[in-house]
Nucleic acid binder design. Structure first.
Lengths: 231, 231
DNA sequence: CCAGTTATCGACTGATAGGCAAAAACTCGC
DNA sequence: GCGAGTTTTTGCCTATCAGTCGATAACTGG
């Protein structure tokens, strides 16, 4: 008799969609299952919630087995999935997180673990594919009204470099002109004063910027229906 | 020995912050605990996740004991709370939902259950106060970039009535002029053609509107960093 | 018919996004 | 060292939209 019919409470696991822009493409960290069920399918890192820890602690603990957790520039809770059929053998509730790794680091990962473009996911175990896509959508939305960009970008960068990261994450082109103006007006970016020498092909040296804040900030108090400004 | 040290997996409950604008104030549905722990404190409706059901099914089932679930115009998952200390006696993970009830219905509620202004919460059990506030914030954010308003409003209404609902939910004044123009331009509202006769004090009769869509729609493709328009 | 009240509409302002093109600053080859 | 090519930066123009104010419309009550 399977566990699911005997237990009175579900097991609980934490999962993470860890995203990074690599080679100009938004990718997610996956590991390949070496046992049943879903042998050979790809899965998100994660594991059981242990007594005495929070879910956030749990996902960090399990992630530590796959990447250097210090490389994570941002993490937030995504959603909790509870479909009784989401795991074939067990009653297993999963709380998913979104993790972001800046483009300048290349974390060591184990043998069974690699990055995959989120737009071309391999055969995925359980509902992990849906979770990865949900992570992508959350990231895309937040790029527009928060400063999450800081979690995708290196400590300092040129506008072109940042443009590459944004367009990879968003899945469409963004104009460098506009990106710079918008982020500067919102005071998310500040110039470091340095400049980056041009490549072999020449060109004007690019100004170097950094994000003004290190943590997540909601920048757009949604223009609409704003409180009346007592000016 | 408390359960929490013997069980290998946490119990899992669903909770809901059910919000409604009542008497011009945003209120949340609470019931008063009649037993320990937190005897006398106020709590969100909810209860255990049972085998074979999803969390959404679970919260609807438990809510049915407090309100007519058909009165809920919208429901969405809020967050999952897992602090081991959130319940004094038990290892209990909670997944919270946000529920919205239109202003024109007055659901029957049991003896122990009443509405409380979210801005003046009574002494709350466990972390339920934080969850209620998280629900308020989620609602406020979504009022600006989605059509959630439909879940707060009656089937049809005048702009002044809608203005009252929005300002109660947002916690600040909104101009009627602006509200109408913004919602109309976004094609969230459509006129019914009818008009509402003025009150005793006189005044021009108000046009009656309804929300164009019944379900949740994200309206603002965040102006920023929009994909290039191939016009 | 007039004063008071409420709702609607139009006009103006300010902020911001998006696009285009010119100017700036460099490399390379001749 | 000069011009062609490249890349980045800047300024200008336009369109859209939010926010405000004031005028007008449509009613009630005396």
């Amino acid at each position: 008799m399977p566990k699911s019919t005997t237990e009175s409470r579900p097991a609980h696991e934490s999962l993470a969609a860890v995203l990074q822009v690599r080679d100009g493409v938004l990718q997610v960290l996956l590991w390949q299952r070496a046992k049943q069920p879903s042998l050979g399918a790809w899965a998100l890192p994660g594991g059981r919630l242990e007594r005495g820890e929070t879910l956030e602690h749990s996902i960090r603990r399990h992630l530590a087995a796959k990447v250097d957790v210090r490389d994570l520039a941002h993490m937030e809770q995504l959603e909790t999935r509870s479909d009784p059929g989401r795991h074939p053998e067990e009653w297993l509730v999963a709380t998913a997180y979104l993790g972001l790794v800046p483009a300048d680091v290349d974390p060591r990962v184990p043998e069974d673990t690699t990055w995959h473009p989120v737009d071309e996911l391999p055969p995925m175990a359980f509902d992990h594919g849906e979770i990865a896509l949900a992570g992508r959508e959350r990231l895309r939305a937040k790029l527009s009204y928060t400063n999450v960009g800081f979690a995708l970008a290196p400590p300092s960068f040129t506008i072109s470099e940042l443009r590459g990261l944004y367009s990879a994450a968003l899945g469409h082109d963004v104009s460098a002109t506009n990106l710079q103006r918008v982020l500067l007006r919102r005071q998310l970016l500040e110039p470091t004063g340095e400049t980056r020498p041009p490549g072999r092909a020449g060109g004007r040296p690019a100004a170097v910027f950094r994000f003004a804040a290190a943590g997540l900030e909601v920048t757009d108090p949604f223009a609409v229906l704003r409180p009346p400004d007592p000016r």
